[in-house]
Write a protein that binds this DNA or RNA. Structure first.
Lengths: 158, 158
DNA sequence: TATATAAAGGTCAGAGATGGTCAGATGAAA
DNA sequence: TTTCATCTGACCATCTCTGACCTTTATATA
């Protein structure tokens, strides 16, 4: 195998495939020791090869008995929707337009009515105005919060 | 089980689950002896894993025949979650604390896992920092968005 | 009754054990 | 040569565990 990163990736994916759980659990130190590298190399592999984009979710805990868990997550049909919303630029990101999108997501059964109403809350101009934010700042925040929220939804299929 | 704290937590929760009372009673010394650790380790576990945030209440008595009682706090329907969150004042509104509350709401089946994860998005400091908001402003917005979102949930049926 | 002693539990600082981050070195490929 | 991916190491953040010292309560004894 060409390089460490590939080796570690392959190893972890094998573990994941063989595991009866929906995740694998490793210790950073141990894994680094196994591959004779510095611990931070593990973080590099996780970042590059087990990112959400690639369909993985990583959790960890520090301290004595710490661990790293890698989940394989289902990529649902929500992905294209998120991409649409993410790609909207400033002018296009208008609450009324977003509400329309959310409505369609609900109709397509991508999200529930309750989820839709939670997401609509995030794009309510009034809230940001009350806190004295400029229109631009508000738009940016709304955009970011919404993208992030949809991103989270993609992860929660397990 | 990786570490002592987890073991002791698991043990106590098992006791609690099996108990016919609404609390369990233990002795610090005995428990420490059972797990072959110093007594103060027990206090650590209680502090970290049986805090009010996590839905537990701990009482104790010193002296001969002393004891420690751990209660699971029932959710009071007299004080809805929305009100609890709304009533948090500045200092108390900390993302870590809110996350704990959301976790409990999920455990109590008030919200789904997906809804919980949507709501968690709203309290991610990083997003607000990236947009250049002050900590205070961010807190205010988080608080308002969360309250508003929970309010919306009340209005909507599945 | 007043006091001493024993038998609990509480607090806190610090050591130990993990994992995280980031800048920069190194290496591979275009 | 330039650029991008890989890899390292120093430094940081967080969680766990211990031990010394303190407070409270029950009980025995003067």
């Amino acid at each position: 195998m060409a390089n460490l990163t590939d080796c570690i990736e392959e190893y972890l994916k094998k573990l994941l495939a063989l595991s009866s759980e929906r995740y694998v659990e490793v210790q950073r130190r141990q894994l680094a020791k196994k591959f004779a590298c510095v611990p931070s190399q593990i973080n590099y592999v996780l970042e590059r090869r087990f990112s959400p984009d690639r369909g993985y979710l990583v959790e960890s805990r520090r301290g004595g008995g710490g661990w790293i868990r890698i989940f394989r997550i289902e990529t649902s049909h929500a992905r294209p929707w998120r991409e649409v919303i993410e790609s909207l630029n400033g002018r296009e990101f208008e609450p009324s337009r977003i509400r329309q999108l959310l409505k369609r997501m609900y109709e397509e059964k991508i999200i529930s009515r309750r989820e839709s109403s939670l997401l609509e809350t995030v794009i309510k101009d009034r809230i940001y105005e009350e806190k004295g934010l400029s229109k631009n700042k508000a738009r940016e925040l709304q955009h970011e919060l919404l993208s992030e929220a949809l991103e989270e939804l993609l992860k929660v299929n397990y």
